[in-house]
Design a protein around this nucleic acid. Structure first.
Lengths: 241, 241
DNA sequence: CGCCCTGTTGAACGCTGTCAAAGTCTGTGG
DNA sequence: CCACAGACTTTGACAGCGTTCAACAGGGCG
């Protein structure tokens, strides 16, 4: 049950998970493997027979355009069932890449199939976790479409802080954020140069510190106001589902 | 089974749906109701006890920002199970609005619950339809983040054409697209003024016609090249799932 | 020591937004 | 049949946010 500990925090924040369900979920994990930063965890367009669960580390969904541009569409952290999507899609239309050293739990699709046959409530919770991914995607569309550069970066900081808190890794005003400015630019659809200026601006305004892969939000309220951040898309209420 | 006819085309394009499953799905529909353009179909933040299935017409997911800006995050067409997300999320973090006259099938969550308890394969197919929504969201993030205005509009045209073909409503190079330029601007994160310039440019290049709510793509290949359009995110292969 | 990656800075350019106004279409009512 | 309102589309001038291009600094590592 070690490998799924943070996933249980995630699911448990949204609904009650029974002991039997915890064991059933834990039993789906075949083995754990590791990746180095920069490695491709799930390659685009290749049929998958496992779904990978992020046990610890930071990964990203990255889409490459024919002309060489890159866009990251979601950041994944400890406890995210990153590649649950391939259970339904069979192959992904994007890469999942490691941004930090990762440990990943391999979950064979045949075992997930068994879960859907025997554990309807657990199935709904796994389904829910992909629905939350979709909600995060929608918020990123809003960011890319309607927020200025500084608002986008501020918004991402708020999102990551809340998500880390849910899985018990956001201590006080600090959480991990092991991205390069280049990767942050790919998240926000900006250039490195401009991200650099924006980050300096946020620092100068006394809103965030961000060094050595750690983010500190010095004034969450002001940062959230700047970003027009509303956490409701992160589905923070505990309800039977 | 009338109300779910186009949904069955959608699902049937991705996997085989048995007769029994068709009947089970059909039985989830309680009644059908209609909406007028501009009406709010599902309001943000309100707990839902039904999921609404779009039988015919065009709807959109729209997010409003505190400062009054608006971003549309997905366009929905005939056969889309628009509000299946609220089955898991319970309440949406955005509005679903009618862009044309709609007819919507009301599906009580309790009946969907029964489906998840008794019809695992059908459940996976419904789950899949929300995964496709997420894949569409990701592509929109790429559009908003990395594509120019003209590329974005071109990309949306390509997407809608393919999606209409799947549900049998894209005849030749034509499909419905009953949006105002203002709504198109909210899809792409642009201003009306600029969308207008871009649309004129596409017309001048002989790529599209778009009048009276109908889109005609005059040169799909060139339009797709301009948009860097790759349909793989729309999950077009028929595979057991 | 030299290379590469990451972060930083400055200047010029350009895509898209802003503002303001006019033109077109459709439906309504006199 | 015409007048009118309202929504939608179109146009032009100008401004600005973010990009592009180029250069340099610092740190880790072979």
């Amino acid at each position: 049950m070690d490998a799924i500990e943070r996933l249980l925090l995630k699911l448990g924040a949204r609904d009650t998970v029974s002991e039997a369900e915890k064991e059933a979920l834990s039993a789906t994990v075949e083995r754990v493997r590791t990746y180095e930063p920069g490695e491709i965890v799930v390659p685009e367009g290749v049929v998958q027979t496992n779904s990978q669960l992020l046990v610890s580390g930071v990964a990203a969904r990255a889409k490459l355009l024919p002309d060489g541009q890159r866009q990251i569409t979601e950041i994944h952290i400890d406890g995210d069932f990153v590649d649950l999507h391939s259970f339904g899609l069979k192959k992904l239309e994007h890469d999942v890449i490691a941004l930090s050293p990762l440990s990943m739990a391999m979950v064979p699709h045949v075992r997930l199939m068994t879960v859907t046959e025997n554990w309807p409530h657990l199935t709904r919770l796994l389904w829910l976790s992909t629905l939350i991914d979709a909600a995060i995607h929608r918020e990123w569309i809003v960011s890319a479409g309607r927020r200025t550069a500084i608002e986008q970066v501020a918004h991402l900081c708020c999102e990551m802080m809340i998500r880390y808190r849910i899985v018990g890794l956001g201590q006080g005003d600090r959480c991990p954020l092991p991205l390069t400015q280049n990767q942050l630019a790919d998240c926000c659809g900006l250039t490195v140069v401009h991200v650099n200026r924006v980050v300096q601006d946020l620092r100068a305004q006394g809103l965030v510190e961000w060094r050595q892969g750690t983010l500190a939000i010095l004034d969450f309220e002001r940062l959230a106001a700047l970003a027009q951040f509303d956490p409701s898309y992160l589905v923070l209420d505990h309800i039977p589902r």
